[in-house]
Amino acid sequence: MHTLFAPKHGVELWLYIAGSLVIGAGLLLLLCQTPQRLRKPVIAFVTFLGGLYFTLEFLIPHDNYFTHVMPEVVNAEIVVSCFTLFIGIYNLFGVHGRAIRRKQPGWYNSVAFFAAFFLIASAGFIKDMRPDSAATPLFEILFNGFMNSLQSTTFSLIAFYIVSAAYRAFRIRNSESVLMMITAMIIMLGLVPLGSALTSFIPANSFFSFLRLEKLSYFILLLPNMAVQRAIAFGVGVGSMAMGLRIWLSLERGSFFDEEL
């Protein structure tokens, strides 16, 4: 079993990838061809087996048979999770390909998607195979200059939304909003150096030192916040257990579970 999951290189690696793809695609095809009334029980059975393994591994005292095969199970899980990557790519190709074919508004963005996808993917593959080739600096430019900067920029837009939302929505309409605003201000000021410097004139060892902003914010974080976080953690824990059981036993209902494949 270990030989099967040991690292592969060169032609052997590509053969393993091709083999995994063929087997995976074959299994998926087989599942699609299965009559609908049988499909759900098959999925439920496989889900149950997967859940059963992890349940037994954790419930039976440590160092049992299941523990020893865990590395192989994890490797198998990695292979399965890689298939989700293909599903993602398939979806993206479908959506953007349709946009270009139908010349939908903004179709040129879809062209940019395909160009970026193939450019960075091929640069990445060539870089790995031939590190001394021109693909390495090209990959650096695409990664650091484009992808990295674009992702950071997208995330940083949140700052502008926060400013706009805080300015327009934070109004002292009632006592609760006053309480919330005061708490937010203490935390925001107390956790940054410039804010805590505002009350640094209060001697740290004096009786009034509790009025220093960093101490007030710490008080809020360590008492009211901690109580709330613990309550949330208990709620989330119980909810997760219930949800886990429902998924494991295929009892879950909803758009993802009731729709036919």
């Binding site: 700052a159 926060i162 400013v163 805080a166 300015y167 327009r168 934070f170 109004r171 002292i172 605003m181 201000m185 925001m188 000021l189 956790l191 940054v192 150096p193 410039l194 804010g195």
Partner: peptide, 24 residues
């Protein structure tokens, strides 16, 4: 970055205060 964050926090607080002065 810590200075940047400090300045942004104070800026947001100033805006909230200004918005509320206008509201009142």
């Amino acid at each position: 970055t810590a200075w940047s964050l400090s300045c942004a926090h104070i800026y947001i607080i100033l805006l909230i205060v200004l918005g509320n002065i206008g509201y009142i």
